[in-house]
Design a protein around this nucleic acid. Structure first.
Lengths: 227, 227
DNA sequence: GTCTATACGATGATAGAC
DNA sequence: GTCTATCATCGTATAGAC
């Protein structure tokens, strides 16, 4: 019940030397990511995280000065993986419709192989704070790393939609609304846990569910966008 | 800085009789709903809520025995409004395509006129806990009121999709996936706050943004589903 | 870099007066 | 039904030894 390493704070149950293993910040970020994904920013305590990663609270604060900076680092790390999974698909000169298909397949791939990702993203986007304006100007605040990354990703998708509308392969949709609909359709499913499992009848990260999802959401979005 | 009513616990700053106004549970639920929508379950404290509603913590615990039960009541109350906004559209004998349009318009109407709703729903659906299985069987747990309500709403939408597929007006989609895509496209936008505003260039609850959203998401989903 | 120990406000919840 | 007072626990964070 009581976390192992926390008992020592009370001065009781001290028994012997504890094997000290070197811990990198990466291990902290990895544990933090799954905890934040599962319970949200305020649902995770530094004590809890310390136990999960096998360190004391104080050591966590050595690696990251505040909880918020740790959270920002977690978000940035996740978006970095997302960006990496997306880059190769967007740079060649294929037609917009083909690039859209690749884009959707890449996103589904990242979300499906990286279970905490969708939940983490969904929470970050629904939480008000981190995105006072994606515009990055006007508000006196300096943008955080993961905001810049998100803006880059969305700008690339925006450019793809604009190219498709310009050459007539996509309908003349409201681009902002189209991006919102696409994000919602893509990300929500992989963030929906038990509800998703109840709706499709099997775990959402199972192989069958993922390959079906790829087909279904790809066709859904494609039909929503193409002329 | 320090909450007004909480100061008295310290035994200081006691000045005079405080006007006691009768408070109904409804007022608590209303305040709690906007707070939970803004900050999530663990992001809201009973103290904070007590200040917002103008009561002491203890009075809150008189109305609701635990924070979780208060949260469950908030979710149920919100889903109740959602259900009310949906009922008239689903019961007549129109063809599936027409009913789908009405369905989408109703959901957008509820989400747009009820600002905390989308965020509250999104958080509830992404949080693991409250939905161990929408099936309501198998798990030894008794279903909560809002789970029953959600299951009813989703079952009605499922029936609409099945009817449309059966009579050939909809494509033979995977129904679970189609529901997930539809929820994502509909709800995420109104839960996305600053990101949504940055993407569409104006507040998401402004009149212009709402009416555009209704057109855009309706066409997006319709094209994704109809044959 | 890791630990123990501590600081202090906030947390959900309870007891009991009015 | 409302309040004051109190509780043990947890919240983030810091100080300083090794």
């Amino acid at each position: 019940m009581v976390p192992d390493r926390e008992r020592f704070e009370d001065g009781e149950a001290r028994e012997g030397p504890i094997l000290t293993v070197p811990h990198s910040s990466e291990k902290i970020l990895e544990s933090a990511e799954s905890l934040f994904a599962a319970s949200g920013y305020s649902g995770v305590g530094m004590r809890q995280l310390a136990v999960a990663v096998g360190l004391s609270k104080s050591s966590l604060f050595h690696h990251f000065p505040t909880k918020r900076e740790l959270y920002a680092a977690v978000l940035d790390r996740a978006l970095e993986r997302m960006e990496e999974g997306l880059v190769p698909e967007c740079e060649d000169g294929a037609d917009p419709s083909t690039r859209l298909d690749r884009w959707i397949a890449s996103i589904v791939g990242v979300l499906a192989e990286d279970a905490p990702m969708a939940r983490l993203m969904m929470r970050a986007l629904v939480d008000e704070e981190p995105f006072p304006a994606l515009a990055l100007d006007g508000s006196g605040r300096e943008p955080m790393a993961f905001e810049v990354r998100l803006a880059r990703i969305l700008d690339r998708f925006r450019a793809l939609l604009e190219a498709g509308i310009a050459d007539g392969s996509f309908r003349p949709v409201s681009i902002g609304d189209a991006i919102q609909s696409t994000i919602g359709a893509l990300v929500f499913h992989f963030a929906s846990g038990d509800l998703g499992e109840a709706l499709i009848g099997e775990p959402i990260f199972s192989r069958a569910a993922v390959s079906r999802r790829r087909r279904e959401v790809s066709e859904f979005i494609r039909r929503g966008l193409v002329a």
